[in-house]
C-alpha cells in the first residue's frame, strides 16, 4: 500500500468550491511535487489529507489507512506561512512543538543540536523567534517539521525566503531524508526545484487534477518535435528543419514530421560539425505549467 492515496477529493466552503476532484498517490521514499497556481486548491487538499478538514466526498489513506490522532506523530507538516511562537525563544519553541509530536523533552533537545548546527542557528537558540530574520525563521520551521523524525513530510513552499546557500542546505536535507526512506510531498511554485528534486508530480488547477505522473514522462508528452544543438562555430544548413530559435546558448531546431532527431545528428556528423550538445528538446516544467494553466 502506498503511504498516501488520495481519491476524488471534493470540498466546498459555502458557495466556494475549493477542491472539485483531486486524486493522486505518493510512493514510499519519493519526493512528490504538489503543484498548482495560487488558489488551485493545494492547501485545502493538504488539509484534507491531514484530516484538518473533512472532505465532502472522496477518500484519503495516509500511512496505510485513514488519518487519526495517533498518526499525527508520524507526520511532519510545514505550512506556507511560518507557524512558530513569535514571542518564544527558538530552542524552547522547537522543543515544545516536538514534545507535542510525542518526543520526550530530553530527546527533542538531543535531536535539535545537530539540526541547529547544520542550519547555522546554534548561536541564535536563545533569541526570540520574532528576532530572527525571515530566512532563519524558515530554517527553524524546516527543523520543526523534521525534528520528531516523521515518516511522511508535507512541506508547503519549503524554500521560501531562503538564499541560494540555505536553499541548498534545505535541498540536501530533503535528499538525505529521501535516502533514509522518508516520503516527502512538496508544494511549491518554483518549478526548477521540482524538476531537480521530484520524481513524480500532480498539477492541480481550479480544484482538479490536470497533470499527474512521472515528471520525465510528462515532459516527453509535452515535448514538441524538436532538438537542441550546440556546435563549435557556425551551424551548417540542415534539411528537414522548420524553425531555428536560440535557447540558453544552444539552438533549438523544430523538425518537420518526416525528419527524426537521428537524421539531424547524422547530417551534423556527415558535415564534420564539432558537436558540443545534442538533446531532445523537452519543455521545462515552467513551460508545461504555463501551457496547461493557460489552456484551462
Amino acid at each position: 500500500m502506498q503511504p498516501v492515496e488520495v481519491s476524488h477529493l471534493k470540498k466546498a466552503f459555502g458557495a466556494t468550491q475549493a477542491v472539485t476532484d483531486v486524486s493522486f498517490a505518493v510512493e514510499r521514499g519519493e519526493i512528490f511535487g504538489l503543484l498548482g497556481p495560487n488558489g488551485a486548491g493545494k492547501t485545502t487538499s493538504i488539509r484534507l489529507m491531514l484530516d484538518i478538514f473533512q472532505p465532502d466526498a472522496g477518500a484519503v489513506s495516509i500511512l496505510d489507512g485513514p488519518m487519526g490522532e495517533a498518526k499525527k506523530n508520524r507526520i511532519g507538516y510545514m505550512p506556507e506561512e511560518r507557524g512558530l511562537y513569535q514571542e518564544m525563544p527558538l530552542e524552547p519553541c522547537l522543543i515544545y512543538l516536538a514534545t507535542l509530536k510525542g518526543v520526550s523533552k530530553a530527546d527533542a533537545r538531543r535531536r535539535l543540536q545537530p539540526y541547529l548546527e547544520r542550519f547555522d542557528l546554534a548561536q541564535h537558540r536563545a533569541k526570540k523567534v520574532k528576532e530572527l530574520s525571515k530566512g532563519m525563521q524558515q530554517k527553524a520551521q524546516i527543523i520543526n517539521t523534521v525534528l520528531h523524525g516523521p515518516e511522511l513530510l508535507i512541506m508547503d513552499e519549503p524554500f521560501s525566503g531562503l538564499d541560494p546557500v540555505n536553499t541548498q542546505l534545505a535541498k540536501d536535507l530533503l535528499l538525505d531524508l529521501r535516502q533514509q526512506g522518508v516520503t516527502i510531498i512538496m508544494s511549491t511554485h518554483i518549478m526548477h526545484q521540482v524538476e531537480e528534486l521530484c520524481n513524480r508530480i500532480v498539477l492541480i488547477n481550479q480544484g482538479r487534477n490536470v497533470l499527474y505522473g512521472d515528471l520525465a514522462q510528462i515532459q516527453r508528452e509535452y515535448s514538441g518535435h524538436a532538438v537542441r544543438v550546440k556546435v563549435a562555430g557556425e551551424l551548417p544548413p540542415l534539411a528537414g528543419v522548420q524553425a531555428v530559435t536560440p535557447h540558453n546558448g544552444a539552438i533549438q531546431l523544430l523538425l518537420d514530421q518526416q525528419t527524426s532527431p537521428q537524421d539531424i545528428l547524422q547530417q551534423l556528423v556527415s558535415q564534420h560539425s564539432a558537436i558540443e550538445q545534442f538533446e531532445i528538446a523537452l519543455p521545462s516544467l515552467d513551460e508545461i505549467f504555463i501551457r496547461v494553466v493557460s489552456e484551462q
Binding site: 491531514l50 499525527k72 507538516y77 506561512e81 507557524g83 511562537y85
Partner: peptide
C-alpha cells in the same frame, strides 16, 4: 502567527 495550523497536525 499560523501556529494553529501546526498545532492542528499535532493535537
Amino acid at each position: 502567527n499560523r501556529v494553529m495550523e501546526v498545532l492542528m497536525t499535532s493535537v
